[in-house]
Nucleic acid binder design. Structure first.
Length: 358
DNA sequence: AGTATTTGACCTAT
DNA sequence: ATAGGTCAAATACT
């Protein structure tokens, strides 16, 4: 995601434009009765009024689509170039004389993955940094860590400051620890407090809903349930997730990057969620599902979208991550998703139960 | 000296 | 061709 001169992202500019447009709408709406009362409520005035409305709607729609496009990681747009003064070089250093073995590139498909947002990168495991990389469109580089306790442990972690709030880190856990014979201290009770996560697993229902998740106040360190010790195997990551910071947390999924237009995506609210939880999924003309901002109040609270398995990691960029606020424990859910029109994949993600208002 | 981090090169997927 | 992930020598730190 591109950043403006003052550190603002393109997305923030769009959101600002949307707000300004809505304010203009409101001003015009207030002005209409005045104009009408001036005795010139002619057909011409009505026509111009409707034209203004249409233009405003078009502006709003365009901005919404632009924002959704940014948030969803469009395939047909190029990421912004690196900012001046920002290093565009890759991380790494040193010579190599020995032939390297095949690189295990971790992709969305087939990788176990968990994305976490929190204020600190500390967890109970020991990690050894082995690389750092500038990520296209991201303001901050991504750091790569391996398990530092056992070199044979495949667990890895990626850490990246979020564009929206550099004080928050996006942690991506890959692969499960195999060094857990010697469990680290405090390895239990990770609290899915403020978090964003999407992963497709075969976890049991009990695993998906860690116990005691609601018992810790949001003022505590942000963590996620099932942190770095991921159960295996983890077949596929695919899902969309949105969380709202308002009283109602909305959850839905999206398949906009899955080629098959027939891919069904669940947008239902599971029975586990309270009745006041709503789900919303808007369709775009190509019949793929996409998120569009809701009201101007809501759109500012769109937190994160984790798209389909066809997406590269760069498309997992969080939006407005600084506004992540959970209002209750997560509820894991599964649904079937036909990707590429062939394979049927089980998808897991979670919604958030809104905190009941007193 | 041992450990941890940095970072250019290299590799693979897209 | 490019972006992202990893390797591993060089360097910094303890």
């Amino acid at each position: 995601m591109g950043a403006g001169p003052g550190g603002a992202t393109t997305e923030q500019f769009i959101v600002a434009a949307q707000k300004a447009t809505n304010q203009l709408k409101a001003l015009l709406a207030n002005a209409k009765p005045l104009l009408a009362s001036e005795g010139d409520a002619s057909a011409g005035a009505q026509r111009s009024g409707s034209a203004v409305d249409a233009l405003l709607s078009e502006i709003t729609d365009s901005l919404s689509q632009a924002l959704a496009s940014l948030q969803l990681g469009p395939l047909d747009t190029q990421p912004p170039p690196a900012q001046p003064g920002q290093s565009s070089t890759c991380g790494g250093g040193g010579r190599r004389s020995t032939p390297r073995r095949s690189c295990q590139r971790v992709r969305m498909d087939g990788a176990c993955r968990m994305i976490v947002l929190q204020n600190e990168s500390q967890d109970s495991y020991k990690w050894r940094k082995y690389g750092q990389k500038e990520i296209l469109g991201a303001r901050f580089p991504r750091s790569y860590f391996k398990c530092g306790r056992n070199s044979s442990c495949p667990a890895r972690k990626q850490v990246q400051q979020t564009d929206a709030d550099p004080s928050k880190l996006e942690l991506t856990y890959l692969e499960a620890h195999t060094c857990d014979d010697d469990p680290p201290p405090q390895s239990s009770h990770f609290v899915p407090d403020t978090m964003v996560s999407s992963s497709s697993t075969q976890w049991s229902a009990a695993q998906r809903v860690p116990t005691g998740v609601a018992a810790v106040s949001s003022a505590q360190q942000h963590h996620i349930g099932q942190p770095s010790s991921l159960p295996m195997p983890m077949p596929m990551i695919t899902a969309g997730l949105m969380m709202m910071a308002g009283s109602n947390v909305r959850r839905t999924t999206c398949d906009h990057l899955v080629p098959s237009p027939s891919a069904p995506v669940a947008a239902a609210v599971p029975a586990a969620l309270p009745s006041n939880t709503t789900a919303k999924c808007d369709h775009v003309p190509d019949d793929h599902m996409a998120f569009t901002p809701w009201t101007e109040e809501e759109q500012a609270e769109v937190l994160l979208f984790i798209p389909s398995p066809a997406c590269s990691q760069s498309e997992l960029l969080p939006t407005e991550v600084a506004k992540v606020e959970l209002h209750g424990p997560p509820v894991w859910m599964d649904h079937d998703l036909a990707c590429d029109g062939n394979d049927q994949n089980t998808v897991s993600d979670f919604a958030v139960v809104p905190k009941l208002q007193n």
